[in-house]
């Protein structure tokens, strides 16, 4: 049985999301993913299971992928977060027309080209997980990609397009590194 008690009132939270600072008041028990979606309007991170299995809510916390359903918003006070909304370079222009590519991250482009999504619900978590995978292993084997992506469930694609997309993006990103 739940009874509100001494410290259930809202606490101040300051955090940076996708490079922008946000301040808010939040009840301690509020999940980070709910705070992102409801308080900050960043609905790209999805709620799929709230027990850490499906991975749809995966975001980067201080540069590392983690489940935003298994963290309280108050725990992110002072943190630097990145969500799917922050993955593409910010163009500043008007939104792209449907079917026209705006500025996309190489992972997003590869998912598009390799049909790495169908319903799109797991996609944000899949992208952020793949991002972390490639930053810890720039040239993963297919088995390593599959193991890394096993952190996120997809029910539509059978993962094949996703695996191909991550392979392609890894190549693009490595080529980009070499250019610099």
């Amino acid at each position: 049985m739940s009874e509100p008690n001494e410290h259930s009132q809202a606490r101040p939270v300051t955090l940076r999301v996708n490079g922008t600072e946000h301040r808010g008041q939040v009840e301690p028990r509020k999940l980070l993913v709910d705070f992102l979606r409801e308080d900050l309007g960043l609905t790209g991170s999805h709620v799929g299971c709230e027990h850490g299995i499906c991975g749809a809510c995966t975001i980067l916390i201080n540069g590392e992928a983690a489940r935003s359903c298994l963290m309280l918003a108050v725990q992110a006070d002072g943190a630097e977060l990145m969500t799917v909304e922050g993955l593409a370079p910010q163009s500043g222009g008007p939104p792209a027309l449907p079917g026209k590519t705006g500025q996309l991250h190489p992972l997003q482009t590869a998912f598009w080209e390799h049909h790495g999504l169908q319903c799109g619900f797991c996609t944000p978590g899949m992208l952020m997980t793949a991002y972390d995978l490639l930053q810890t292993n720039a040239a993963p084997s297919e088995a390593e990609i599959r193991a890394g992506l096993s952190a996120v469930l997809c029910r539509c694609t059978g993962y094949q397009g996703i695996v191909e997309a991550v392979q392609a993006a890894a190549e693009t990103l490595r080529a980009g590194e070499e250019d610099q």
């Binding site: 739940s2 009874e3 509100p4 008690n5 001494e6 410290h7 259930s8 606490r11 009840e27 301690p28 028990r29 999940l31 709910d34 709230e50 027990h51 309280l72 108050v74 725990q75």
Partner: peptide
């Protein structure tokens, strides 16, 4: 599936 209320301390 939302947590029940609790007092929260972050020492």
């Amino acid at each position: 599936m939302k947590p029940p209320p609790f007092a929260y301390h972050a020492p």
